[in-house]
Design a protein around this nucleic acid. Structure first.
Lengths: 190, 190
DNA sequence: CGAAAATTTGACATGACTCAACTGGAGTGG
DNA sequence: CCACTCCAGTTGAGTCATGTCAAATTTTCG
């Protein structure tokens, strides 16, 4: 069941087949359509979603109504608003699907039960979050030290697959640029 | 021993006194002088340091020689370069002391032994890193959506204590501004 | 006290933003 | 299949925040 998930977990911890089956028993499969919300501002982020197929974006709308993309999610990534999820308070983020998506999801209660049933999963999630933290720190540094053009160049090198699946305006938002600025940056290169 | 550490751990997991003593037995106390490096670019980040007293900064130097402050560390915070620490590869960061510091430190080997001896500590560090990740994501969003003046205002509200212990130029660097710009922002307010 | 570092200030340059108009492709309905 | 709309992307003009370079001033600390 869900070979992508199995592969993903095995990258970080060694589970027996039996343990992996146990893990699966705590997860719930769910499909979403293109443009559908996985999470909407004001709601509680009730689950962390592992993406089996498809592409989505996590974004926030600021006081001026501008959207800022925090993260894209594709196959093999987890998406959710961790703060809202952990504290069970309303989220300020939206997550919507750029393509039809297939996910497996875990609620906080299920996750806690999972830790009891398969203690190694505590380690697994620690590692996942560690990596996410390291990536986020890198991004902070990038945003502090590089120009828009450099950030764009690094982005397409690092995520060539995502760049082709996502509209430019959302890439611009991820990079902290307006669509116009990104368009000019691209025009300059050619 | 190290009441600040005890208080800090107890915020997140419930340890017996005996367990806490065990935890302490894996840690090494170490002092640093003002201006001394805890970690220097090119070296491996051999330990995660919990600050008992003092103030330090983690920063990175870009290709143009400009410094960018990633994080300040004061009493009750952990500092280190997690990526370098986990992979045992050379770090691109520096950590230096803004004041004389007292720390307790954990090497990767000690940490792994600690997880075996006191399994709850695996949960403890997961929570610490979770919080760090959430804070880092917030900062990304902040940097994308707010002006220099707003970022400064939010900074002094959130870290009034740090702001008074750290030179302005380093606050500017943390915020992604030049010292000159920060100086003008401050002048405007008055 | 005196040197070195930090901060401030001025003049000017520039990258990115805003607003607005235009272009072209995708989807829809007649 | 065409006309129409809608939306993403592009382009132009003007503005603004922030950066750069340089010099003056203040603070820090050895």
């Amino acid at each position: 069941m869900w070979p992508l998930l199995k592969e993903h977990i095995e990258k970080h911890v060694a589970l027996t087949d039996e343990e992996f089956e146990k893990v699966c028993s705590f997860l719930t499969f769910r499909r979403y359509r293109r443009k559908q919300f996985i999470l909407q501002e004001g709601d509680i982020s009730r689950y962390e979603s592992f993406i089996l197929k498809g592409c989505c974006r996590i974004y926030d709308t600021d006081s001026e109504g501008h959207e800022h993309v925090l993260q894209f999610g594709v196959e093999g990534w987890w998406v959710g608003d961790l703060y809202s999820y952990l504290t069970q308070t309303p989220s300020s983020c939206n997550i919507d699907c750029i393509e039809d998506c297939e996910t497996v999801q875990l609620t906080l209660l299920q996750q806690e039960a999972l830790y009891k049933a398969v203690p190694l999963m505590e380690r697994f999630f620690r590692i996942i979050i560690q990596n996410a933290f390291i990536a986020s720190q890198r991004r902070v540094l990038h945003n502090l030290s590089k120009s828009g053009a450099e950030r764009y160049k690094d982005f397409i090198e690092k995520y060539p697959h995502i760049e082709q699946r996502v509209p430019d305006r959302q890439v611009a938002s991820y990079l902290g640029l307006t669509p116009q600025s990104l368009s000019r940056i691209r025009a300059r290169k050619r």
